[in-house]
């Protein structure tokens, strides 16, 4: 076997990229090279990871339900499911149209077997029994698993690639040269670093995001609360809050508004990052025409749970249901109006 020949090169450093590499290798027997940066345990997690999204398309709920079960099985099979937890998850609305959308989310959630209750003021929907994991807890376990699987790692900063006429790629890292039949850009960082603005799908939106760790807070319920119209999610972590703020405008004001019922909180850490989303709230998944690259963007906090389905797509064995779902969200889809999702908020 040619040690330098791979079926796929996955560019990405976050957990979803790592899980995609693991699923391709463990489930589909693919030879995978993962191109990204080593895990940095002292950095704040760039995002939360949740098996549930506030989406309004039943076909997406069907995929999410399957994704949750498959991810648990995938990680359980590798002995790394200990980092998964069940949690309640709240969505809070300020605007009437968001309250209306939560009504749709609630009924879909109920049908898919989740507890779903509105608060007395009708502004907060709490879903029970979602699956979540702490990135900094899971990543070292996944890294050890990737090593056991024989996934080869290359440093993202030092690796370049070029696409050959036959669609395969040559990757160079200093003197090292490897080939891959396909290339996937599996996280926001890889997408931003490897695609010029001109090459990016027009619907992609690049913006800022911030993660903040606070000092101890008064007990809040539920443990994860997403202020949809404020672009802010509070996640209770061992006394304090890990806060994720999407967008770059009025971040301090939005942060202060979401913590207004707390005693004065200290900021223990702040991380700023770039985020890739889509204008219509629908992810973009599939192969670009030029350059011929597989891209994943806009899956939000559920991205990690899509790893098994994405692996099937990349390996060429999606189910019929997945094939339809991915086709409608392909970068080359003629129209996405029929799969548009609710897009919250002003932030």
């Amino acid at each position: 076997m040619d040690e330098s020949a791979f079926d796929i090169a996955i560019f990405g450093s976050n957990v979803p990229a790592r899980l995609l590499a693991a699923a391709l290798c463990a489930t589909h027997g693919k030879r995978v090279v993962l191109v990204g940066e080593p895990f940095s345990p002292l950095r704040l997690p760039a995002q939360l990871h949740l098996s549930v999204l506030p989406v309004t398309r039943p076909e997406t709920w069907t995929l999410l339900a399957k994704a949750e079960a498959e991810t648990i099985a995938l990680l359980g099979g590798a002995g790394v499911a200990t980092a998964l937890v069940r949690t309640a998850l709240g969505f809070r609305a300020d605007l009437p149209q968001t309250i209306e959308a939560l009504g749709h989310v609630r009924h879909l959630a109920l049908t898919y077997g989740l507890e779903a209750t509105f608060s007395r003021d009708g502004r907060q929907l709490t879903l029970g029994n979602a699956v979540s994991f702490a990135e900094e807890m899971l990543t070292p376990l996944v890294d050890a698993w990737l090593t056991r699987l024989g996934v080869v790692r290359l440093p993202g900063a030092d690796t370049e690639f070029s696409i050959l006429k036959n669609g395969s790629a040559v990757l160079t890292t200093g003197e090292q040269l490897v080939t891959a039949q396909q290339i996937a850009l599996a996280d926001d960082g890889a997408l931003l670093a490897r695609l010029s603005e001109r090459e990016r799908p027009a619907l992609l939106r690049v913006g800022g995001a911030t993660a903040v760790l606070t000092s101890a807070v008064r007990a809040a319920s539920p443990p994860i609360l997403n202020f949809l119209d404020r672009g802010t999610t509070l996640s209770r972590r061992n006394g304090g809050f890990l806060v994720h703020l999407e967008g770059e405008s009025e971040t301090e004001e939005r942060l202060g508004a979401c913590l207004a019922d707390q005693p004065p909180l200290h900021r223990l850490a702040t991380r700023r990052m770039r985020r890739v989303g889509t204008a219509d709230g629908v992810p973009i998944i599939g192969w670009l025409k030029t350059p011929r690259l597989f891209v994943v963007a806009g899956l939000g906090s559920a991205a990690a749970f899509f790893a098994p389905a994405l692996a099937r797509l990349v390996a060429g064995v999606p189910t019929a249901e997945e094939k339809r779902w991915f086709a409608a969200r392909s970068p080359n889809a003629a129209s996405r109006a029929m799969v548009a999702e609710f897009v919250a908020g002003a932030a």
């Binding site: 301090e252 004001e253 202060g256 508004a257 913590l259 207004a260 004065p264 200290h266 850490a269 991380r271």
Partner: peptide, 17 residues
């Protein structure tokens, strides 16, 4: 990221437009 501790987060009455 982690060396900027200390500042108190000021409450605000921001609401989305």
């Amino acid at each position: 990221e982690r060396g900027m501790a200390g500042a108190t987060i000021a409450p605000s009455n921001w609401v989305p437009e």
